[in-house]
Design a protein around this nucleic acid. Structure first.
Lengths: 338, 338
DNA sequence: ATGAAAGCGCTAACAA
DNA sequence: TTGTTAGCGCTTTCAT
């Protein structure tokens, strides 16, 4: 079933079918109707390979994450999917498990397939490498600070979130505050930095080194990290976690130790996963709009691709988003765990 | 950068490059090495459009779910992704929100793109329609009972899970048991049927109609459903939920009503999401291995596609999986909520 | 407003 | 073992 069959059935030439298919101008409305009806009747679907071969576009983008089963990503992904759908993009997802090899192979795969762009949460690749790929493939980097003019990014205001969390804890009377930090991710740096910058202001005497424990950004990671932290510093009465998963793990650890939350140990998370209000006690955490984040990623990528295929004559050139940094807000939500 | 450039640079013909690229037999090892080196040096990547045009294969499969931000799906998806990666498949994900139109458009999109197959959690399309699509595109249907010889499926033993849950509740002394059922999904039928079949055995006098309340299979859906259920039947002391999300919502509703879980209301979920042990009280639920489920989906699809591209001469034909039904186990895990 | 011709980059079939 | 030919289905010139 090719365009030729449709043309024959409708009594026109291939090109006329193509014109109807692509909403081109130079076609008589009634001819278009007839062709469209034939297409419908024959259940014809244009072959994407042949089309891509000509147009060099695939209407496909990639989404690169470390692990889709980490609930943070699906929340973002959903926004991305929805925005992608409105512009006709299909999205293919890659899990990297933080492996450099897999981050690169996802990118290579995407290029070979003629993807229109990629949105990535990269952890292993450095800015220079990313920038090189971005030359071949429109790219939006998410949630990692980039320091390269060729890289476009959408990030979260991790610093503001952590600062609000620490402020809240200090205002609640906590003197000894610890952090459950992630071992992975460039983004972790920003959260930790905000923590160590902020905490001394309130607690000049704190020995920060021992107050920051790293672990995998997972529930068990949070559990282990809290135990380690409290074993070393039993005087700590509050912790801010890298993310909600670690915070939930910390609450679990507190229960194991017979510590009441928040009265004996206050816990604040980061992300505000959909489950956060339903753990016990309901999690005080830094909220970000993950759905909006996903939409924004797709929007920025879309602008990026639009810049590469110059508009028709006479349209005013939109300000370029290439190399831009979008920073999304992060605000503390106080529930009961702190 | 085309195969022609590589051929020129390596001093061979296109075809020889193609042979090196595809590990074909008729090529001298040293020639292959030379070509491969040239490919490396030139950073050449074969164009997937041109390749697909010839081979009619895309190394791409689709995953159709209702909503990737429902944590059940990412858990399955991860297994699917991992298995897909081992056979060189990329996977493009579609969210349908239970819409018939979107289920169909995902399928059409996949066919137009020459996808090698699809794995789907379908809710709106009927068996006949699905079977029609399955004729054009190797398809594995997940978690829905199918009654059509042309449809291959991988499902969960919902009945066994629900039966175990009810038995546990009855053994714990509960007389009045309700169900928080989902409004959506064919699969719901199976769980509800198992419930109504099982409960009468233990509770002959129960008026089941009022004991089954439907709602969206989400946390708020569970909260609303439990309120509705208890307002109508305050004598109920235990509920089994369609899934963990509804169960978590039910626990939340119990808290709003000042009901202690499990002493005043026992709650059993279904799925055993990764969060289940960490809500409070830890959720008693029916466990399924979602990662294995995802892998299995990919495996079955892979066998299906292998059947369509006949093996070389003389290989023993494997038993066909087309039209088969794989049923995955579901076992109760008793924690503290029931 | 429509049709004819060309060619995108690759691989399958055939020739050497 | 290697090279040559043909053509996959579509869109983009260009001609009518």
């Amino acid at each position: 079933m090719t365009i030729e069959d449709v043309a024959a059935a409708a009594g026109v030439s291939r090109q006329t079918v193509s014109r109807a298919l692509n909403n081109m101008a130079e076609i008589k409305p009634e001819t278009r109707q007839r062709v469209l009806a034939t297409i419908e009747r024959l259940d014809y679907r244009p072959n994407a390979f042949a089309r891509g071969m000509k147009t060099r576009k695939s209407n496909t983008i990639g989404l690169i994450v470390s692990d889709i089963s980490n609930p943070f990503y699906p929340a973002v992904a959903r926004g991305l999917f929805d925005a992608a759908e409105t512009v006709g993009w299909n999205v293919v997802v890659y899990n990297t498990d933080l492996s450099r090899r897999r981050e690169e192979s996802a990118l290579n795969e995407l290029i070979a397939r003629g993807a229109d762009g990629v949105v990535g949460f990269f952890y292993a690749l450095d800015d220079a490498t990313l920038a090189r790929y971005a030359g071949d493939l429109p790219m939006v980097v998410s949630d990692r600070p980039v320091d390269h003019a060729a890289l476009t990014s959408v990030t979260t205001d991790f610093g503001a979130g952590i600062r609000a969390a620490v402020e809240h804890l200090v205002a609640s009377g906590h003197q000894q505050i610890g952090m459950l930090d992630s071992t992975v991710g460039v983004a972790a740096d920003e959260r930790r930095e905000a923590f160590v910058e902020q905490v001394p202001v309130a607690l000049p005497a704190a020995d920060l080194a021992g107050h920051v424990i790293q672990g995998p950004p997972t529930i068990p990671g949070g559990t282990a990290a809290l135990h380690e932290l409290l074993n070393a510093r039993p005087e700590i009465t509050a912790v801010v976690a890298f993310n909600d998963l670690m915070a939930i793990g910390a609450i679990h650890a507190a229960r194991e130790r017979g510590l009441a939350v928040p009265s004996e140990l206050a816990v604040v998370g980061f992300d505000d996963l959909s489950i956060a209000p339903y753990v016990f006690p309901p999690l005080t955490t830094v909220h970000t709009d993950k759905y909006a984040h996903g939409r924004r990623l797709a929007d920025v990528l879309h602008q990026l691709t639009a810049e590469r295929t110059p508009d028709r004559y006479g349209e005013r050139p939109a300000p370029s988003v290439s190399g831009s940094r979008v920073v999304l807000p992060a605000t503390l939500i106080v529930r009961e765990s702190a």
